[in-house]
Design a protein around this nucleic acid. Structure first.
Length: 694
DNA sequence: AATATCGTAC
């Protein structure tokens, strides 16, 4: 009996104590193993260890695993964790399933998330939030909205997390009306002191381009934090109000809130957009003081700001003084040189870059195209396609700009084919570049057809591009008619008026030109330097020099373009002598003449027959001003010598010029040779012309 | 964060 009882006791003892102890040890062993793998960053190994253990483990472990799957976007492992959980736990806690939904959402597998969400026998507010957040962050705002409605229907209360996600979706899909309703809810639920939600409202209003409401909301926030300030600066910048963006940034500094690196960056981009060098330099000072100089985000924007404000040297100084340079700072400086017309230096830097991406390639390509170096651009493009095998919407837009610059209709059509194949048809920027290409290559019909196709997604840039095509084809009447039509769909911009005035100028349509000028005054259009230049050009082309001078009087700042317009305006109005006097005044004012200026000067010399002075200008343009003569300058010189019978000089010039004379240059010179019986050069030219025929 | 479509003088 005692023996038996002893053995029974023994048995019970084993069952009660010894066996459970083994079980705990095994579970503990597995847990330790899993945690060890996780600490070593070996998620897959951790999950397969979990899978080999056929019983439920502590819930906190699953939570931990989901969290890591989430941050590593490990969908396969996440599915395994969920399956282990639901296999061994008949009623898993809701919070864990919510974590699973979050994880699936973060991995971008919204169907998995939705399936789990639907199958949950019980949901709490967190489940709805997890699902809504998944849709909101996965780029499915409409799904998020409908779930939000569903949640209200079944009587689950929204909380601040719900509102934050829904506002994010509103911002992504520019849902202004819904945003206003959410705004009301937020106030009603008593979240008016919640800085995060209120900052989101500022963001939404800004994204919906209602800056007045954004600002109102901002002003209601008692303690705006760094993110709030960042949002308001960024939204002003995006809405084209660089001035206000810079202003808000300076207020942020006054409020003693330490800017984020992106806020510095936004403020500097805002400075670039309004060419506010002084303000930019002040921000540079703050950057230095607060120790952001070595921050890649800040330094690249700083370089960019100096370059855009015309201080390339200062930009490159920052670049060279940087301790570590990343891809973006490299791209900034390459782009800086490229966009300042210094393509040689830019290319050297480009070749030195330790790594490149599509943006760096695009930046270099844009530099060539911007300085009209078409052939270099073409070579570079081939190299790019060869080496990177990749292109994006920016590359395609640049390719179209290149085709337009070369007036190469065939190439343009080929690029159109590319666009079609790569599925960039609905990209607005590419579409507008395509429109412009057809216009510039002289195919107005294709431009119009494409403009029609774009009717559901075109913008004001599309209208401007089409107007330009009409203007280019000397169809100013039709351009003005389009202008009326345009106003039914969108508002005109500076570009619109620039184009219209040019159209009037080129067709000497004084009446229409005055109408456009009147429209601008009546509608309070700000007439800056560009539009003043366009007006001046129009009036002087229309031989209305009195009005032209009237416009000139009201302009406080004269740039090269304006001076060039005045100089050419004098030439058109048989006042070449005054053009030459103006050149002196311009130089005195400290404005650097460019290739267009010298073209104007040489045209004036041709008109006045000033051979020696013209030759002197031609020399000084290279030696003193380092402006490289182009076709039109050579053309002027040949005309100058030919018209005035300077045959020895003509011969010397034609035979030593570094580029091949064009057929029209040769014809001008040949006429002179015939007139002055200068057969020595005449024969040489005849030979050249014959070469052209072969 | 860095590239990016339309305008003025030729």
């Amino acid at each position: 009996m005692s023996e038996t009882s002893a053995s029974v006791f023994n048995h019970i003892f084993h069952n009660r104590n010894l066996y459970p102890q083994v079980e705990i040890t095994n579970a503990q062993k597995s847990i330790n193993k899993i945690l060890g793998y996780l600490n070593a960053g070996r998620l897959r190994k951790a999950v397969s260890t979990l899978f080999r253990f056929p019983e439920l483990l502590p819930y906190s472990l699953y939570a931990h695993l989901f969290q890591i799957c989430c941050s590593q976007r490990a969908i396969v492992e996440a599915r395994k964790v969920e399956s282990h959980l639901v296999t061994f736990s008949p009623t898993p806690p809701i919070f864990l399933l919510n974590r699973a939904i979050e994880t699936y959402g973060k991995c971008g597998f919204l169907n998995d998330a939705r399936e789990l969400f639907e199958e949950m026998p019980q949901k709490d507010g967190g489940s709805w939030n997890a699902m809504i957040t998944a849709y909101a962050q996965g780029g499915f705002p409409d799904e998020a909205f409908s779930l939000f409605l569903g949640m209200n229907k079944v009587g689950v209360y929204a909380n601040k997390i719900t509102f934050a996600s829904i506002l994010g979706s509103c911002a992504a899909s520019f849902e202004l009306n819904l945003s206003r309703q959410i705004h009301g809810h937020i106030m009603k639920y008593g979240f008016h002191r919640n800085v995060i939600l209120c900052s989101s409202l500022v963001d939404v209003y800004g994204k919906c381009q209602v800056m007045s409401d954004a600002r109102k909301m901002f002003n209601e926030i008692r303690y705006p934090n760094a993110i709030t300030w960042n949002v308001i600066v960024r939204r002003y910048l995006d809405n084209g109000d660089g001035r206000e963006a810079v202003l808000m940034f300076s207020r942020m500094l006054s409020a003693a809130i330490r800017p984020l690196n992106f806020t510095f960056s936004n403020a500097l981009v805002a400075c670039s957009s309004i060419y506010a060098l002084k303000e930019g330099m002040q921000i540079h000072g703050v950057v230095t003081k607060l120790g952001f100089l070595e921050n890649d985000v800040v330094s690249s924007s700083l370089i960019n700001m100096y370059v855009k404000c015309g201080e390339l040297y200062e930009g490159s100084r920052i670049f060279y003084e940087l301790g570590s340079k990343d891809l973006v700072t490299w791209t900034s400086i390459v782009s800086g040189y490229a966009m300042s017309g210094k393509t040689l230096e830019a290319r050297e830097l480009f070749n030195e870059m330790p790594e490149r991406n599509i943006i760096s390639w695009n930046a270099m390509l844009a530099g060539y195209i911007d300085s009209s170096k078409w052939l270099e651009a073409l070579d570079f493009l081939y190299l790019m396609l060869d080496e990177t095998k990749s292109l994006d919407h920016v590359t395609l837009s640049l390719m179209l700009k290149l085709s337009a610059g070369l007036s190469d209709h065939e190439m343009g059509k080929q690029v159109h084919g590319y666009i079609y194949r790569y599925g960039f048809h609905f990209n607005l920027m590419v579409g507008n570049a395509l429109l412009d290409m057809y216009g510039k290559c002289g195919n107005l019909n294709n431009a119009r057809v494409w403009f029609g196709i774009m009717s559901t997604w075109r913008d004001k840039v599309s209208w401007n591009a089409l107007l330009t095509s009409y203007a280019r084809h000397q169809l100013s009447e039709q351009a003005l008619a389009m202008f009326s039509e345009m106003q039914l769909e969108t508002k005109p911009t500076t570009y619109t008026f620039g184009t219209l005035l040019a159209a009037c100028a080129n067709t000497s349509a004084l009446y229409h030109g005055k109408q456009v000028h009147g429209y601008m005054i009546r509608h309070g259009i700000e007439i800056g330097t560009v539009l003043s230049t366009a007006l001046l050009h129009m009036y002087s082309k229309c031989r209305c020099i009195g009005y032209a001078f009237q416009v000139l009087k009201g302009i406080p700042f004269r740039d090269v373009g304006l001076w060039n317009t005045i100089i050419f305006g004098c030439c058109h109005n048989r006042r070449a002598k005054e053009a030459l006097e103006l050149f002196g005044a311009m130089v005195e004012e400290g404005i650097k003449p460019n290739h267009v200026t010298f073209h104007g000067i040489l045209v004036a010399c041709v008109e006045e027959g000033l051979v020696e002075y013209g030759a002197q200008c031609f020399k000084s343009m290279m030696n003193e001003y380092s402006v490289l003569p182009q076709l039109e300058h050579y053309n002027c010189m040949i005309e100058l010598y030919s018209r005035n019978g300077y045959m020895d000089e003509l011969e010397n010039f034609v035979k030593t010029m570094p580029i091949e004379p064009t057929i029209s240059m040769l014809n001008i010179a040949l006429d002179a040779c015939k007139k002055h019986e200068y057969s020595k050069l005449g024969e040489w030219i005849m030979e050249k012309i014959n070469e052209f025929n072969y």
